[in-house]
């Protein structure tokens, strides 16, 4: 009898997880389907999980009349992500190394200096005024990078990885006369590479997905990231309606407003979806290491 009960519960579990997984996945199907539908049928019949009147006209429209904006937004996002990630990883690992050096008498001071910013914050407003009026980061590419160069959480995560490197290796290098710079670059970074890759991915994800900084600092259309372009599209549908109606195959068509949003969604998620299967393991490891007491 208990056997049957156990089996029933287990089947119920499988069903629950399967349903929630489908719910997690379905919205993306909706987006793809919307992007492949024709505008007229979406307008008349609404969105659907199966393309309404399968067509590529939306993508033709986007790549036809909005190509320049999309390519530029992609380029800005890519630049910010690459430059930001590289710089942030350098800043973060260097700081994390300092905090992890056991013989350094002020390491706790440095650790607390970073940690205190997690406890107390001046809030958005002073941050905004300083960034725009004093640092002049508004409407500059560097403004989309610099504020995120040191995530205290990732810094402590990296410290954990550095601490797990056997101390004997460092000691023997010191005996051989290596200084801190050499130990950091030649020993800690290569041996802590799993940590370096992990925090790189967290930074890359943050830079790619961010639209807080553009929201705060960017008004210049040339500095729109792909996320912010998406935001302006959603918040202000006029963006798509403006400009010339696209000419596809000689016929003038009205700009496809609804399907274009879905197509932009697909274009924005695409790079993440492609890389996800290869990289998710690092995120999982990072989350587990980070949550088990830093």
């Amino acid at each position: 009898m208990p056997k049957a009960e156990n089996k029933g519960l287990l089947i119920f579990f499988y069903v629950c997880i399967a349903v929630f997984s489908v719910i997690c996945f379905a919205p993306f199907v909706l987006a793809v389907s919307g992007s492949l539908s024709t505008e007229s049928r979406i307008a008349a019949e609404g969105y659907s999980f199966w393309p309404r009147g399968f067509s590529l006209e939306t993508y033709q429209f986007l790549f036809g009349s909005k190509l320049e904006q999309i390519v530029r937004a992609y380029a800005v996002s890519l630049t910010v992500t690459v430059l930001g990630t590289v710089s942030a990883v350098l800043v973060t690992t260097a700081y994390a190394y300092v905090v992890s050096v056991k013989s350094f008498r002020f390491r706790n001071v440095f650790a607390f200096f970073a940690y205190f910013t997690m406890l107390f914050s001046g809030g958005t407003l002073p941050w905004y005024l300083l960034s725009t009026k004093y640092y002049h980061l508004d409407d500059k590419l560097i403004g989309l990078i610099v504020p995120y160069l040191l995530s205290v959480f990732l810094m402590f995560l990296m410290t954990n990885y550095f601490r797990s490197i056997p101390h004997e290796i460092v000691e023997s290098a010191q005996i051989d006369g290596a200084g801190h710079l050499r130990i950091f670059i030649r020993i800690m970074l290569p041996l802590g590479r799993v940590g370096v890759v992990t925090i790189s991915l967290f930074y890359a994800l943050q830079y790619w997905n961010d639209f807080y900084l553009p929201l705060m600092l960017v008004t210049d259309e040339r500095l729109y990231t792909i996320q912010y372009l998406m935001y302006t599209m959603m918040a202000n549908i006029q963006f798509l309606a403006s400009g010339n109606a696209a000419q596809v195959g000689g016929a003038i068509i009205a700009p496809p407003l609804e399907t274009a949003k879905m197509a932009m969604t697909c274009l924005t998620v695409l790079p993440i979806a492609i890389l996800y299967p290869f990289l998710q393991g690092f995120f999982v490891k990072g989350i587990v290491v980070g949550s088990v007491k830093g």
Partner: peptide, 24 residues
């Protein structure tokens, strides 16, 4: 060298965390 290595991080913390606190 340790102070040198920590310097960029300290700068970021001061600019984007500590000075905003004083901005209160």
């Amino acid at each position: 060298p340790l102070y040198l290595l920590a310097l960029p991080g300290i700068a970021v913390l001061i600019l984007f965390a500590y000075l905003p606190m004083s901005g209160l």
